[in-house]
């Protein structure tokens, strides 16, 4: 398989005007052109300038990723598109709330694992825990995998937020 056809995972940071419909424009572009969204997070990051930051994790071949960036770039309310996967070193974090139910050994094991993963207990009843865990996507995937046999009930994830390392800003 040539490099051109290799599927890659990229994290894109998109700075947009925080105006009505801007998220719909971005999502509509992905669905309308058949691109993939693995995760998406969005929130206002500058209340003076009314700017929001959208972080999208997408997968595709290198030419498709280039297309996605070009298509995003031509949306009128988009200020900047940065491919954190290729343009810089970056850190990526995701938060998850994970509900695990059970009693006895499974419950003890779940709590022990949560300590190993530095998850926090944010809710507890005699037969349930809600863990809060922060980390990169792989870490959260691993933790969820471990919880499965221990009574995993429900998962709520934020999707990845990401930022470049070092003093430079996008």
């Amino acid at each position: 398989m040539s490099a051109e056809n290799q599927i890659e995972r990229h994290t894109l940071s998109i700075l947009v005007d925080n105006e009505a419909g801007v998220l719909a424009r971005v999502i509509g572009l992905f669905s309308g052109r058949g691109y993939n969204i693995d995760s998406l997070t969005v929130a206002e990051v500058d209340d003076q300038e009314h700017m929001s930051r959208i972080t999208i994790v997408t997968v595709g071949t290198p030419p498709i990723i280039e297309q996605i960036k070009a298509q995003l770039g031509r949306l009128v309310p988009v200020h900047r598109v940065v491919d954190l996967t290729v343009e810089c070193e970056s850190v990526e974090r995701e938060l998850a709330l994970i509900k695990v139910t059970g009693k006895g050994d499974a419950r003890v094991e779940a709590l022990r694992m949560s300590e190993a993963f530095r998850a926090r207990v944010v809710d507890a009843t005699p037969d349930s825990f809600v863990f809060e865990i922060t980390g990169n996507t792989e870490k959260i995937d691993a933790f969820i995998g471990l919880m499965k046999p221990l009574g995993l009930r429900e998962v709520s994830r934020t999707g990845a937020a990401a930022i470049s390392r070092g003093p430079e800003a996008m």
């Binding site: 030419p63 280039e66 297309q67 070009a70 298509q71 770039g73 031509r74």
Partner: peptide, 11 residues
Amino acid sequence: IDPSSINKNVM
């Protein structure tokens, strides 16, 4: 004039 036209169908 449209950057998204570049390498869209033909490299």
